[in-house]
Design a binder for these strands. Structure first.
Length: 112
DNA sequence: AGTGTGACAAATG
DNA sequence: ACATTTGCCACAC
């Protein structure tokens, strides 16, 4: 995990893949876990720049408020929200409701 | 090699 | 409380 951090992107993808089903995390949390707390934007950009990777559940990555900020980038459709709901995440108005229940923090869960 | 950007976040006005 | 601006750091051109 996150061994090939030759590119920050690679690390982001690794962490994103580690997100367990039914859970979500924030860009800042991933960035913080990677050591670059202030690079929250890079995390989101990683998905965008790389194009939605199939192995990378970008739909499980939301902003600090638990809002599906990037759902627009998934396309006109909303597989992002649909996926989350399928995982058991309550999403209303593009925003996660039970965020406290589904929030997954790598710095805590992967606390080394 | 420098500039611009970006699916955020926190700080002001 | 809400809206807007700055800061941030790594990648693409």
């Amino acid at each position: 995990m996150a061994k090939d951090h030759t590119n920050f992107f690679n690390s982001v993808y690794d962490v994103a893949r580690l997100i367990p089903p039914g859970r979500v995390t924030s860009y800042g949390a991933i960035a913080h876990y990677l050591g670059s707390k202030g690079s929250a934007r890079i995390v989101g950009w990683a998905m965008n720049a790389s194009g939605i990777h199939e192995d990378v559940p970008a739909h499980r990555v939301v902003n600090r408020a638990g809002i599906l900020t990037g759902k627009h980038h998934f396309g006109t459709i909303n597989p992002m929200q649909k996926r989350l709901e399928a995982e058991g995440v309550i999403v209303v108005d593009d925003k996660i409701q039970n965020l406290d229940q589904v929030y997954w923090d790598p710095t805590v869960e992967l606390a080394l």
